[in-house]
Each structure stands twice: as C-alpha cells, then as structure tokens.
Nucleic acid binder design. Structure first.
Lengths: 115, 115
DNA sequence: CGCGTAATGATAATGCATTCTCACGTAAGA
DNA sequence: TCTTACGTGAGAATGCATTATCATTACGCG
C-alpha cells in the first residue's frame, strides 16, 4: 500500500495531508479518503500508531517496539523521534496519584533549521 | 470578571465549556462568546495561559510564574498541575539539535479515581 | 434626562480534520 | 464473455471549537 510506503520512506510522523501528498507521487490521483481508510486499517492491525502533539493535528508513524518521544522543530514544523526518556517521572506526581504513562515533547530547532 | 473568578476557584486548567458552565453559576445567562472574549483579553494581558494536551481541546489556567507540567487523570479527565520537572531533557535530542523548551504530561489516576 | 459608546447574548458562520455517500471501474469467478 | 462484489475517487456532509455578526442593553457623561 502506498500509504505504508510513504511512512516507511520518511520514518517520521506525518500528517494525513502529508501522507496523501507523498502517496500521490506514487499513485497519482489517490484520494484523501483512501489514505484515511488505509490509516485506519493500519492502526487497527497495529502497524501504525497515531502521534498527537499539543495543539497539533494528529500525525501517524510506523509502530515501534521501543519507547520513545518526539522533538518538534519550531522552524520547519517537522517532528522527529527521540530515543531515551527521563526516568522517574512518576515521582513528580502529587502524593496519592498513580502514574501509568507519560508523554514528553521537546521543542527547538533541528540541524537544518539552525543553519 | 466572572471568567477569572471561575479559574481562580478551581485552580486547575479548564476547558472553555467548563469555564462557561462555572461562570454561568455566578452570572446566569452569560454567553459563550463572552467567555471567549474574556479569555482572549486575559491571555493578551498575560493573566491566563492556554494549556494544550495531546488530542485534547485547549484548556486555560491562571498564569504561573514557576515552571510546571500537567497530570491528566484517565478516570475523571481532569488536569492537575505537577510541580517539578526532570532536568537534562535537552540531552535526549539528537546531536546537532537545539532544544529551547519541552512539555511533559503524566497520565494515570488521581486520588479520587483510584478509590 | 437623553444620547452615544462599548459590552453582551443568541445565533449564524467559519475553518478544519475526518467520515460518509455513491456512482463508477476493475478484477475475480462462473 | 457476463456477472458480481468490492475498492476507489470526488465531493458532500459532519462534528466541533472558535469567531463574527448584529440587534439589544446598560452605563457614563454631558
């Protein structure tokens, strides 16, 4: 499927629109509806996961086995994966709260946008 | 202003709808438009800051001088403030990237929802 | 006491991502 | 070759938060 190939090519979380644009380069005339249909089934089969950042429309990336977070470039707006994760986040929560997950988003500029 | 008072009362980030509901208890018949107008001016004067969590509609909280993050309860959906912050997040970014900010969101259950 | 200005409430309009509709084309099967 | 069922593209429809519109109201001030 062209949608899957587009995601594999960039290896970075993409918006539905961007996926549509990339997929259209491979399959001209592909409809946006088809992209959403494909994403839906890829998500259901666990091959793709949605990535939501604060104040942004959802993006989609290939499913990964390992825990990771994201970096959002203020210059180009692209999102990159970030390996690693600060441990001990649960300790920050107020007493009596149970923590079962977390999200970390870094903001700044990627190498290209610093130049 | 009733909007400001509603935010002061709960001290927790609220959605526009929730603020409207609370404010209506003080000023019956207040319109949603007025809430948005008030929020807009409060934000412009720096008294209120918008809080955006992944996949959620924006919330608004009173401006704070100190750095903090948020805890999102999976039970009641409420958002709480979290003091403190794991340092050294910039080290996680790929080489050559500059980090100038970050967001951390904890997920779990608040004391009330654990019971 | 009367007018003008600015704020207000109700509601319509907007913007946007996502989903639905549906006629059409295609490919597999008989 | 004919039939049938499914996937597709195009565009309309939906849902939702936010913003604009606009007639009305209240208040300040002359």
């Amino acid at each position: 499927m062209a949608v899957r190939r587009a995601l594999e090519a960039t290896r970075t979380p993409m918006r539905a629109q961007e996926i549509h644009g990339d997929a259209a380069r491979v399959v001209p005339g592909i409809g946006l509806a088809t992209v959403y249909r494909a994403l839906k089934s890829l998500i259901e089969t666990g091959q793709v996961v949605p990535v939501e950042l604060p104040g942004e429309t959802p993006r989609y990336e290939l499913a990964h086995p390992h825990h990771h977070h994201h970096f959002h470039c203020r210059g180009c707006g692209r999102v990159f994966e970030v390996e690693g994760c600060p441990g001990d986040l649960a300790a920050l929560a107020p007493a009596g709260f149970s923590v079962d997950g977390h999200e970390v988003v870094l903001y700044g500029r990627c190498t290209e946008c610093i130049a």
